[in-house]
Design a protein around this nucleic acid. Structure first.
Lengths: 225, 225
DNA sequence: AGCCGGCGTCACGTAATTGTAACAAATCCA
DNA sequence: TGGATTTGTTACAATTACGTGACGCCGGCT
């Protein structure tokens, strides 16, 4: 379930720093200390993303990148290059060209994580369903709009996320716990009945379409198949 | 028959790496290390597109661009300018001289390839520049100008990029984080409410057209579909 | 130097949103 | 049927989000 990231970096302390932060963000991590090993692991595990240092003993980052691209199984693996500091902007640009993005050392962890997420997001873009539609309700996640029988509904952010989650699981029951975790986030420490209140508010705005949002007594809520 | 791209760039590293990526994408590549040679090759081979660095020894990118435009055989060749970050002002000049698009360094490979394909798809130079138009607002990325109801608006660089990003995603909500990453860059470590301030300034300049830039409470901002 | 435009931050006011409590209604089970 | 449990409904206070104006910094220009 968790996404896998391959670190190819010769300096052990940087590897460790990266591993620590990536795992804290929920990624699983592979490590390689040189280009050859990185290439081998990439082919074996087909990670979701590679962090690739440019300056490596033996095969350098650019060469690894080139060889990855030459193989069809590995050519789709997004690569984020780590480039040494102090280089000319032009040079950095050049070095980044075999990759999807690059970060200049020393980098801030925050920035690196942002870039990793950005690169990963590009991959899943296509799989995201653009429109959720059921029983005359049309929800556009991208636009953050909802229509019921052609009328646009003005939902609050929470209501919207709630409806989105229910729609994504249309046909199956969602428990209050599941909804709290997904809509409110794991750090929410409130009462489960908060869900009830928001379901009520949502129903009020749904009008006639509210009948599709049913209560499953003792379990949770569900949108009809 | 693969399309031919001419790279005019003085740094050998960058040339090589551009060549590598372009050939990987199926283009055939010509190289020139300075403006004069670039001009010569352009006249000889009439490539499908030119990647033209601004900073060149001898004849600079603008001059190359201008001389190309003066000849009927070469005037149709699409030009994609490579500009360094500090060359914002020059950009306007270059584009007015006939470049079809520009890419500001540093850029990611992905972005460069997308732009190359966009320019090639557009076909004949200047025949159909990408103009972002919505609700009486017309933004010309290449010319770096914005009009609202026929009146030209004088936007700052940040305001322009902000509006450009919002327009490119018209109909979709953009979160503050997305806007910060895109408009301010990943290395920006400031406060998300900075976005609000710039939205406000943008709205002030948009005048009546400001109503198309709506706030999506709890999420971000969106330009109406 | 002095000025100025652009930018990021801050403080404040207002309005929308949200979580909770309290009570009513519905449903279940013995 | 009656008590227990679960859910619906309403009201409300606290919080949050956003718009707005102002301020200070910085870099470029005169």
């Amino acid at each position: 379930m968790s996404q896998q990231i391959l670190i190819v970096e010769d300096e052990a302390d940087i590897r460790e720093l990266l591993r620590f932060n990536l795992e804290r963000e929920g990624f699983s991590v592979l490590e390689a200390a040189d280009g050859n090993e990185g290439l081998k692991l990439a082919r074996q595990h087909l990670p979701d993303l590679m962090l690739l240092d440019v300056m490596l003993p033996g095969l350098d980052g650019f060469e690894v990148c080139r060889r990855l691209g030459a193989q069809s199984e590995t050519s789709h693996i997004p690569v984020l290059m780590l480039t040494a500091k102090g280089e000319e902007m032009d040079r950095v640009v050049g070095l980044s060209l075999g990759a999807d993005d690059y970060v200049v050392k020393p980098f801030s962890v925050r920035e690196l994580m942002l870039r990793i997420r950005a690169v990963l997001r590009r991959g899943v873009r296509s799989s995201e369903s653009p429109v959720l539609e059921r029983h005359g309700i049309r929800l556009r996640p991208e636009a953050h709009t909802v229509e019921a029988q052609g009328e646009e509904l003005l939902l609050t952010a929470t209501e919207f996320r709630l409806l989105e989650d229910l729609l994504r699981h249309a046909g199956s029951v969602r428990t209050r716990e599941q909804l709290l975790n997904k809509v409110w986030g794991y750090s929410f420490e409130g009462y489960a009945r908060t869900v009830d209140t928001h379901v009520r508010r949502l129903r009020a705005k749904l009008g006639d379409a509210a009948s599709m949002l049913e209560t499953v007594r003792g379990v949770g809520y569900r949108i009809k198949e």
